[in-house]
């Protein structure tokens, strides 16, 4: 049985962030080795400022109250927890170049790599998920 979970985060909204980090922390807590490849808008989720201001999908803003009521942890909290549990963050070099971003724009302890870096991790991972 594979002990790896590989995740591609390609979207930058708040709902996307929850899907990514909930699965990632749950997998890490189940003793899985987890890596997330952040590409295109997905980079938002680990951007130092961006992750504090993730947007809800248009017309879904009223869910903010539901998040509060269900005591769902904030995205920065989940990012910290994921790091603590050993989840590996890989930021896409190509997207960073296109958007003019550097490693310093992101949370600490990320790895910067290309598609092959992720593919190498994902080659024997099960499941591989895309959000």
């Amino acid at each position: 049985m594979s002990n790896k979970v590989a995740i591609i985060a390609a979207n930058g909204g708040m709902f996307d962030a929850y899907k990514v980090f909930n699965i990632a922390t749950a997998a890490a807590a189940s003793d899985k080795e987890v890596a997330i490849f952040f590409t295109f808008e997905g980079l938002n989720l680990i951007h130092k400022q961006g992750m504090h201001a993730l947007e809800m999908p248009a017309g879904k803003e009223h869910f903010a109250e539901g998040f509060k009521k269900a005591q769902v942890p904030s995205i920065p909290e989940l990012v910290e927890m994921a790091t603590e549990l050993g989840v590996k963050f890989i930021a896409c070099q190509m997207t960073m170049d296109v958007m003019g971003l550097t490693k310093e724009d992101f949370v600490d302890n990320i790895e910067v790599g290309g598609a092959v870096t992720f593919l190498d991790f994902a080659k024997d991972a099960s499941p591989t998920l895309t959000f």
């Binding site: 909930n22 922390t25 749950a26 807590a29 189940s30 269900a70 005591q71 769902v72 549990l85």
Partner: peptide, 14 residues
């Protein structure tokens, strides 16, 4: 108590 998924699992693990 009062915590949402995945917190109960993460806390249990710790």
């Amino acid at each position: 108590k009062g915590l949402a998924c995945p917190m109960p699992i993460v806390k249990t693990k710790k």
